[in-house]
Amino acid sequence: MNESEKRIMGLISSSGESRAKAFEALQAVRTHNYESAHKLLEESQKLDIDAHNVQTKMIQEELGGNKIEVNLLMAHAQDHYMTAQLSRDLIEELIKIFESRDMEE
């Protein structure tokens, strides 16, 4: 595995972990454990930042003349990254809705 593939795998790994933490946060809401849900969302966001940093570095390198090969692995990594971001954003909003509803009761 070359260096570029290792970075792409890092992007996939961070994104997948980010998405998993977001869904764990949503599961915590089932038991009304909002403290845990918020902590898991913070962990998800940190992992998302790790993925973002990998992606940004690769973009900067390409802008600097180091052409990045776009292949199925890279497409897969971008898919994971976008899905993780969307999942976290949506789950964060769902948690806010459930939390506010529980406060009203």
Rank of each mutant, 00 (worst) to 15 (best):
Q85K: 11
L86C: 09
E62K: 09
L94T: 07
H32R: 15
H76F: 09
S13E: 15
Q85T: 01
V54F: 12
D89H: 09
E35G: 13
E3M: 10
R30A: 04
A25N: 04
L63W: 02
L72W: 07
M82S: 15
S13V: 15
L90E: 11
E61P: 00
S18H: 05
T56F: 11
S36C: 08
L94K: 12
I68Y: 04
Y81I: 01
A75K: 02
I12C: 02
E5Q: 11
G10L: 00
E93M: 02
H32D: 15
A37R: 05
L90P: 10
Y81A: 06
R30L: 03
R7E: 14
H80M: 04
Q78N: 03
R88E: 10
M82P: 14
M58A: 10
D89Y: 13
R7V: 08
E104C: 09
E42K: 15
E61W: 00
R19V: 03
Q27H: 15
S36N: 14
K21V: 00
L40Y: 10
S14Y: 09
E42G: 14
E17W: 07
D102Y: 06
T31C: 01
V70Q: 04
A25W: 06
A75R: 01
M103T: 15
F23Q: 13
H80R: 06
S4N: 08
N53D: 14
I8N: 01
A22K: 04
A84R: 03
T83E: 07
T31N: 11
T56Y: 10
Q85H: 09
L90M: 15
I68C: 00
K6N: 09
